[in-house]
């Protein structure tokens, strides 16, 4: 039995691109929550054996051109797209968020921070929607202390896309101090089904007391629980996408 009470461990693919550097932290944090997490290379063709996918932080392909612009064309991204279509939880953390926007699996783009500086600090983020695979176990208005570590974290999108996301509860976390100048202080967003998530702060770096915060655990455990629920529902109905209430 896992710490989260599943009978069978949730299998998570943690995708590694050339230049990814948060994969081991991510695997460790997920493993401590009871998941069975594997490193999967960007050249991999299939993710069919996994219940969930994480694109961790780093500098995929050196962040050349734009962060995520080249990673988007990696062979594994077709499988990530398929996993997303199947309703499997897909989480992009930091550089992973950038890759998911470049791949158009999430709306918007992440631009250089408003202040022109690389940011590496602990920030407070507020949960603004619980209708997603990473916030279902959190409460609305809950404030999480999470580290950020990025140069291109300023979220931007078309005004219509912002309106759509806000109306449908797809803005999941907002910075309290908006350190990077993101549109509407956005720190995390979801796709239409709440299963593909982009998250700029690093939950894996706030997962043990040694790290000054354990607030990332609620996001990662929600993510794993969502994957487990989907797997069980899939066993029952085999219909694919999980709709959020």
């Amino acid at each position: 039995m896992s710490p989260l009470g599943w009978t069978q461990a949730v299998r998570v693919a943690v995708v590694v691109f050339p230049g990814t550097n948060c994969e081991h932290d991510t695997v460790l944090a997920l493993t401590e929550l009871g998941a069975d997490a594997d490193l999967v290379r960007h050249t991999e063709g299939s993710l069919d054996g996994y219940d969930a996918v994480v694109l961790p932080g780093g500098f995929a392909h050196g962040d050349y051109l734009r962060p995520g612009a080249i990673a988007r064309f990696s062979p594994v991204m077709e499988s990530v797209r398929r996993a997303a279509t199947q309703g499997k939880p897909v989480l992009g953390i930091c550089n992973g968020f950038q890759i998911l926007t470049e791949a158009r699996l999430l709306p918007g783009a992440l631009m250089a921070n408003g202040g022109g500086r690389f940011l590496c600090e602990m920030v407070e983020c507020e949960i603004t929607s619980t209708s997603s695979s990473i916030t279902s176990g959190a409460s609305l208005g809950q404030v999480l202390r999470l580290p950020i570590n990025h140069f291109e974290g300023r979220f931007t999108c078309a005004p219509t896309a912002l309106k759509d996301m806000e109306a449908s509860g797809r803005v999941l976390l907002r910075y309290r101090s908006n350190p990077n100048g993101s549109l509407s202080s956005i720190a995390a967003v979801a796709n239409e089904t709440g299963t593909v998530i982009g998250l700029m702060p690093h939950p894996e770096r706030a997962s043990t007391a040694l790290m000054d915060s354990t607030d990332g655990r609620v996001l990662l455990s929600s993510f794993l629980d969502s994957a487990e629920r989907r797997r069980d529902m899939k066993g029952a109905s085999a219909t694919g996408i999980t709709a959020w209430p």
């Binding site: 051109l65 612009a69 080249i70 064309f73 709306p107 783009a109």
Partner: peptide, 8 residues
């Protein structure tokens, strides 16, 4: 497809 991101 690659050099520019039409979002921005």
């Amino acid at each position: 497809r690659l050099l520019a991101n039409p979002v921005m």
